[in-house]
Amino acid sequence: MTTGLPPNAGVCLKAEHYEQALAPERVPAWFEVHAENYMGDGGPAHLWLDRARARVPLSIHGVGLSIGSAAGPDPDHLERLCRVVRRFEPAAVSEHLAWSTHEGLFFNDLLPLPYDDETLGRVADHVDLVQNRLGRQILLENPSSYLRFDRDEYPEVEFLAEISRRSGCGLLLDVNNVHVSATNLGDSAEAYLDAFPLDRVGEIHLAGHAVETDTDGRPLLIDTHDREVCDAVWKLYEHTVLRTGPVPTLIEWDARIPEWSVLVRQAELADRCMDEAGTRPPHAVTG
């Protein structure tokens, strides 16, 4: 499936990089921002984002809607997301298969869901609610997993495919999350990707992770978004785009923000992988 994002590498737009990222000569094909960072009443961030979207398409990525909460997303927060989407008119809107708010308390983390029939029904309903309120399709992202629930009835891929089928949402495939989850749970990342409904993918995420060890001395990967994409994830990405052709691909980097040039180089690597995977039109930049 396609969104209004071009099939090129995009970069997350952080306050640290506003000036360089929007330098007149060369801007990336598109930018992604976290919706919650633009939910203040005003301020220079809003002006920078206006400037960014005057030049290239935007992706608005929510990190706090808590679609997986049993009680559903907070109506006030959905209203805030709606305002951000109305103001900045992004080419794509995405959220996570996760929950992050409970009883009015925000955890600031993407908490895991059991993959059973009750959750499936609720999440599909909540996605439906969000899409109706926003008046558009959203993309739902696969999470990073550190554990499983004993009550799981579905593999994650089937679960996501079924939510997409029931609600009509697209999927955001985070290849780093696939690698993190597969390593942590002892699964095969390749098998996950081979089973993934790639025709539903509207965007791909790439990011870096930290490597720790669990109590048994096995690797425990933490989805930190604070470093370069690792070789294993690049391989999985190549494997994926060979099948999908070029897909809008984001370099995500949310902590220990590097020099702008580091992000640009990561985006160039993603573009090179896509060049080898298929043809696409050159992206247009205005302004």
Partner: peptide
């Protein structure tokens, strides 16, 4: 109701 990997304890995870 949660499991880490295989039989390993879920505490660290």
């Amino acid at each position: 109701g949660i499991t880490g990997r295989g039989d390993a304890g879920a505490g660290r995870r």
